[in-house]
Amino acid sequence: MNTLLHTMASAGPLAAAWGVHGLLLRRRLTAARHDPLSGLWTRAAFEARAARVLARRPHVAVVLADLDGFKTLNDTHGHAAGDMAIRSTAAALTDAVSGHPGAVCGRLGGDEFAAVVPLASPVALPWLLRGLHDEITAPFRYAGRDLRVGVSIGAALSTDLTNAPSANRFGLLLRLADEAMYAVKRSGGGWSYPAATTPVTGSTAGRRTGRDGTHTTLRKGAS
């Protein structure tokens, strides 16, 4: 009996230590899945959650937002101002989707953001995009002055892809949102949600050919 009590007494601190270790590990894993600047989900974590939302909700908007004038802001006011613009955009995105339970937001990299937003009805999409555009382009305060950035926003609706394979659904919706965003960016910014069901442009590594971060491989002998 004394041996059993001694063993239990010895195991108590060890179990407590493992409990603390597990808690710290979970916190570190959670932190690693969040972008440190914006506080939003990183790309991989966002995509995993986005796929689950699409599988569970009947009407889902996939939204892609890319800032306009971000480089000029950085060059004119410094990178700290650019960091503030990223944080301001993340706050605006989070606020704009706060009325839609189950929505997920992420920073895909640089000045590109995305969200998957469950909707009560597809007709709610224009109000969502208009509100998001207005919030992101509102002035933010930095170093005692008001600064602002523009934004181009594209979206695609899950109800437009009812026949798409579930395994590829999110990737295709993100591509369509990307094309809508790119089209509106070429026209000077704003927001758009054309009811396209197949990508118009070619793909490079799963993304729209010609966008930042993509390139084509030249054939041997090509110049």
Rank of each mutant, 00 (worst) to 15 (best):
N2A: 10
L4V: 13
L5W: 07
L5F: 10
H6T: 13
A11E: 03
L14E: 09
A15T: 07
A17G: 10
V20Q: 14
L23S: 13
L25T: 11
L29I: 13
T30P: 04
H34C: 15
G39N: 04
G39K: 07
W41N: 10
W41M: 10
T42Y: 00
T42D: 08
R43V: 06
F46L: 01
A50H: 05
A50V: 04
A51C: 14
R52T: 14
V53D: 03
V53P: 03
R56D: 06
R57T: 05
P58T: 14
H59V: 14
H59G: 05
H59Q: 10
V62K: 02
L64I: 04
D66G: 15
L67M: 12
L73H: 09
L73P: 06
T76W: 09
T76N: 05
G78I: 05
H79I: 03
D83V: 10
I86S: 04
T89Q: 01
A92C: 11
D95Y: 14
D95P: 04
A96C: 10
V97L: 01
S98W: 04
H100C: 15
G102I: 05
A103Y: 06
G106P: 00
G110P: 03
A114S: 14
A114N: 05
A115P: 08
A115Q: 08
V117K: 11
V117D: 02
P118K: 09
S121K: 12
S121M: 10
V123S: 13
A124L: 07
L125R: 11
P126N: 03
W127S: 15
L132R: 06
L132E: 06
H133F: 04
I136R: 13
I136V: 15
P139S: 14
Y142H: 14
A143L: 14
G150D: 11
G150K: 12
G150N: 11
V151I: 08
I153Y: 04
S158M: 04
T159Y: 05
T159W: 05
D160C: 02
D160F: 01
L161C: 00
A167G: 00
R169H: 02
G171L: 00
G171K: 05
L172E: 01
L172C: 01
L172R: 03
L174T: 02
L176G: 00
L176R: 01
A180R: 04
A180S: 01
S187E: 13
G190I: 07
S192Q: 01
Y193H: 14
P194M: 02
P194K: 02
P199D: 00
V200S: 06
G202Y: 00
S203H: 07
G206N: 02
G206Y: 02
T209F: 09
G210K: 11
T214A: 01
H215G: 10
A222P: 03
A222K: 08
A222G: 02
